[in-house]
Write a protein that binds this DNA or RNA. Structure first.
Length: 919
RNA sequence: GCCUUGGUGGUGGAAUUGGUAGACACGCGGGACUUAAAAUCCCGUGGGCAGUAAUGCCUGUGCGGGUUCAAGUCCCGCCCGAGGUACCA
């Protein structure tokens, strides 16, 4: 019997694929299909067995689509800029470019062993100047654009300049940082610097003083999605709020479109919901409250305009610019102390300690609907960055206002009939209004509308939609990132000439910030334009390079354009995107924004980048434990550990099989255990286990290379799919892998006779064999399309289990079977495909069609007995539904016999058994 | 708190979307081959009861109700887990 020599087979075909560029794609007249994986950041640790999960799934899908006649674009590249390489550089002095290169090489080796169908000629690296030229180019386009709210579109800033010269801000409805008003005369009188300053207020990419998340440990600012609960996502260092001059992208201008277009995407509901929450649209109103003492209006934002009669105080964020002038002489000390105190607190402390604090300014505001005077307070529960940074507080119907009012003894006025506010606020938006003047008697929903109407009619404010989504902070005080194509003249930023791109990242040898406190680029020599203007010292953040990489794959070698119109028109956008859910509020928002911006410019033909998205689950580690009896070097098997006082010790999972410890290997594993003793059960040492994160320190890392070495890439691929649904997170457990490996060996053996000769006959297949094949084709096809790969693998196993006893070696059956297996196990399929006498690669084969007729066909014998349940003499069809049976049985008068005089209305039959007869 | 998901044997997981619950695989038990082991192959395997037996019966998808000839699946009310998110006014 010829052995299934997977090592030889896999090496052979991987070489063949690479040498003949089998997976190279070009534009042709076939329909296109674009399958994309989120490209990896090549970390120093290499790939563990969890990383390729998504790549395997997308590879199966790509190969399948190719068999179905699509021209499939399936590229891969590297997200090569990033913090870890730079941190490593700071510690070792090793240039990040060097470590990145090494890591990429290692990644590539590991990936190549798994047999992917990537077109490596299209590889991109974000740190490659030929690539980041287009990241910089896009930035320049953003700098030179503004967002027109009227057309809901980005437009050239030159339009705005023209308009200013003709009409000033009159008639302009543009997204901006701060509303401005000036006339054409005023504009025309302004100097260059003033004009540039004004334009920054409108540019899509702009420089501004903003409150940023400053991470001192990393020495850089972070975007909102890079921070969680006051700590940096990378490293978990504390983050504080600070005002700094930073480059920002006006992502918020696109909030509404980003929200609306979610509806047309084929993404999971939970992911769309996460994005909706992140965008955080809320409809409400801005209402002006007059402050007599300083003769100004303060504007608050509220979604509950209906509760305005219950506003018993007003509160400002401590950072609010009006805080100072509102504070009376007597209150000055208290207020400034309070503001100082909140300033010192980090974001994290604020989250940890939510006790009610605040200070009274001494001033009063006038409630515009009833003329009441209400005190103005300052409190850190009001956020500077949301709404106007000022709220009208309605303690009766907002729990935070309620807590504040109770603490400082401020009045609580209930506004909804029958609600009890003695112990807590009534936050629900239901009930009938009371104590509310003209709103009395209305329901809350009606009152919200009526109040907004009233406010607008009386010029007390206006309707307003607010979003939580803020502009993206785009500067990083780091070295290992894209340089900004920006220089400064008289302190104002200008972009360099597009034709001079890329602006290459200069070499430096120390990667710490410069002594002057400037970012690392401050150390670069001659970091200036030819005219001697200083260049920007910040670099771009990680998401810059990953925001449009899917476009670059369409036309990766084009040095004239990001992507040619021809390539873009053909490939359009990504049909299937596979990646982790951790990018929900980062990359997946920025990419959508970036794409929409390029769409507005006419660079892309589709306004959404990723049509369908699959989030693959994480593969966790499955750790094993040995139990050492305290104070000894004696280990007790898991089943007996309760009889002793033990400590659990992580054991390397690679020396454990089916939770049975290999004692010899264990003794050699670490010097400490050389003379360890063991208390066994049934002659074995059984380990305990737990599901944890896959990490070196838990000794539960399984390396794909090791699996490929001992079982082969095809087994690895199929086993990863067999483990469970792709979307689901699950622990890796090497134990079950034998089953899949056994399947491949059985499949292999179908093609060989007992003497080990390749033996496939051209005989006609039997009906049974054909049924088995067609059933499998149908199942595999629907499963792949539903991304249900675990059940696909089962279907193959069932098929082989059925064919084995029949000793089926017929080409008519086995050849199509090989084709449908090829997306899953491409190496073995390719080998057999060639053994069958085919010349070109199996990926050029066609996915076989199944015959619905063959599967639907069924023959009946009438029941032999009936007493509640009926059995049929003969085997019934493989699949049919109740409806088919109902029709079939009723069509024959013989069926009426068994119901003793009554005519059956409905006969329900399930896979050969009558379940019920309704008369 | 809110949003999104899940809850099925010893384990990973199936179930044509309302139709024999537990496919397939692991593990376990038994057997064949072998001097032996590995590999391979065959049989059994949710729980319980009855029977020499083929087999039959009861019970069973987190808990409690409901709709239906029929519920893991639909409806109402709970419990638990996972993920996201939050002084967002």
């Amino acid at each position: 019997m010829m052995e299934y020599n997977f090592r030889k087979i896999e090496q052979k075909w991987q070489k063949y694929w690479a040498e003949n560029k089998i997976y190279k794609v070009e534009i042709n007249d076939k329909p296109k299909f674009y399958v994309l994986d989120m490209f990896p950041y090549p970390s120093g640790a290499g790939l563990h067995v969890g990383h390729p999960l998504g790549y395997i799934a997308s590879d199966i899908f790509s190969r399948y689509k190719r068999l179905c006649g699509f021209n499939v674009l399936h590229p891969m590249g590297y997200d090569a800029y990033g913090l870890p390489a730079e941190q490593y550089a700071i510690q070792t002095g090793q240039h990040p470019a060097v470590t990145t290169e090494t890591n990429i090489k290692r990644y590539r080796e590991q990936l190549d062993k798994i047999g992917f169908s990537f077109d490596w000629d299209r590889e991109v690296r974000t740190c490659d100047p030929k690539y980041y030229k287009w990241t910089q180019w896009a930035f320049i386009q953003m700098f030179n654009s503004y967002y027109c709210n009227k057309y809901q579109q980005a437009r050239p800033i030159s339009e705005l300049i023209e308009a200013f010269a003709l009409h000033g801000t009159c008639g302009i409805d543009a997204a901006c940082s701060k509303p401005l008003q000036f006339t054409a005369e005023e504009w025309n009188l302004k100097g260059e610097i003033q004009r540039q300053e004004i334009l920054l207020n409108y540019r899509m990419a702009y420089l501004a003083d903003t409150v940023v998340n400053w991470c001192a440990a990393l020495g850089t600012v972070l975007a909102n999605d890079e921070v969680s609960e006051g700590l940096s996502i990378r490293g978990g260092y504390p983050v504080e709020q600070k005002i700094m001059k930073q480059w920002c992208l006006r992502v918020s201008a696109y909030a509404q479109r980003l929200l609306n277009d979610l509806d047309k995407l084929d993404w999971s509901e939970s992911l769309k919901e996460t994005q909706r929450n992140w965008i955080g649209r809320s409809e409400g109103a801005e209402i002006k409250f007059h402050i007599e003492s300083i003769n100004t209006d303060l504007t608050v934002f509220t979604t509950r305009a209906d509760t305005i009669f219950g506003a018993t105080f007003m509160a400002l964020a401590p950072e609010n610019e009006h805080a100072d002038k509102l504070t009376t002489e007597q209150q000055k000390q208290e207020v400034s102390q309070y503001i100082e105190r909140t300033k010192r607190r980090t974001e994290r402390e604020r989250i940890a300690d939510r006790s009610v604090t605040g200070a009274f300014t001494g001033s009063y505001a006038t409630n515009p609907v009833n003329g009441e005077k209400i005190p103005i307070w300052i409190s850190d529960y009001v956020l500077a960055g949301y709404g106007t940074g000022i709220i009208m507080a309605v303690p009766a119907h907002d729990s935070r206002d309620y807590a504040f009012a109770k603490h400082f003894n401020l009045p609580v006025i209930p506004l909804i009939e029958g609600c009890d506010v003695s112990a807590e606020s009534f936050d629900a938006k239901e009930g009938i209004m009371i104590n509310s003047g003209f709103l009395n008697g209305l329901t809350v929903t009606q009152a919200i509308e009526a109040a907004k109407q009233y406010i607008e009619n009386n010029n007390l404010g206006k309707r307003k939609v607010n979003c939580r989504l803020r502009d993206a902070i785009f500067s990083r005080q780091r070295y290992w990132g894209e340089p900004f194509p920006v220089y400064y003249r008289q302190g104002m930023p200008y972009t360099i000439d597009e034709h001079k791109l890329p602006l290459e990242l200069p070499d430096i040898d120390i990667f710490l910030p410069a002594e002057t406190g400037e970012p690392p680029l401050g150390r670069a020599k001659n970091w200036q334009t030819d005219e001697g203007c200083p260049l920007e010292l910040n670099t771009m953040p990680g998401f810059a390079g990953s925001s449009a990489y899917y476009l670059r794959y369409m036309d990766p070698h084009n040095d004239k354009e990001l992507v040619s119109a021809e390539a873009n028109k053909y490939w359009r956008n990504v049909d299937l995107y596979v990646g982790g859910t951790e990018h929900a509020t980062g990359h997946l928002i920025y990419s959508r924004y970036w794409n929409k911006f390029l769409f507005d410019l006419g660079v892309t033909v589709e306004d959404e980048p990723f049509k369908k998205l699959i989030n693959q689950g994480m593969i966790q580690g499955r750790s094993n434990f040995a139990y050492r009896i305290k104070g000894t070097n004696k280990f007790v098997s898991a089943g007996l550990k309760n009889q002793y006082d033990t400590t659990a010790i992580h054991v390397d999972v690679n020396i454990v099989k089916n939770d049975v410890l290999d004692i010899e290997k264990f003794k050699n594993w670490m010097p400490d255990f050389n003379n360890a003793q063991f208390i066994l059960e049934d002659g074995k040492y059984i380990c305990g286990y737990a599901v944890e994160k896959m990490s070196k320190s838990m000794y539960n890392v399984v390396n794909p290379d090791v699996i490929v070495e001992s079982f082969g890439a095809d087994t690895l691929r199929m086993y990863e799919m067999f483990l469970g649904p792709v979307e689901q997170s699950k622990p890796w457990d090497t134990n079950g892998i034998d089953g899949v490996h056994r399947f491949l060996r059985r499949f292999w053996s179908l093609f060989f006779d007992s003497d080990g000769n390749f033996n496939v006959s051209d005989e006609k297949a039997s009906r049974q064999e054909l049924k088995c094949l067609h059933k499998t084709i149908k199942k595999i096809q629907t499963d792949i399309e539903n991304f249900s790969f675990n059940t696909s693998v089962s279907a193959f196993m069932i098929c082989v289990n059925e064919l084995m006893p029949l000793k089926c070696n017929k080409r008519e059956i086995l050849e199509p079977l090989t084709v449908i297996l090829s997306p899953f196990a491409p190496h073995i399929a390719e080998e057999i495909w060639h053994l069958l006498g085919n010349q070109s690669s199996i990926c050029n084969a066609a996915f076989p069609a199944y015959s619905e007729e063959l599967l639907a066909e069924h023959t009946f014998e009438y029941p032999v007995s009936f007493n509640g349940k009926v059995r049929f003499k003969k085997e019934l069809p493989l699949t049919f539904n109740a409806k088919q049976i109902e029709e079939a049985t009723l069509a024959d008068p013989a069926t009426q016999k068994w119901t003793e005089g009554k005519t059956p209305r409905k006969i329900i039959v399930v896979t050969g058994k009558i379940i019920n007869i309704v008369t």
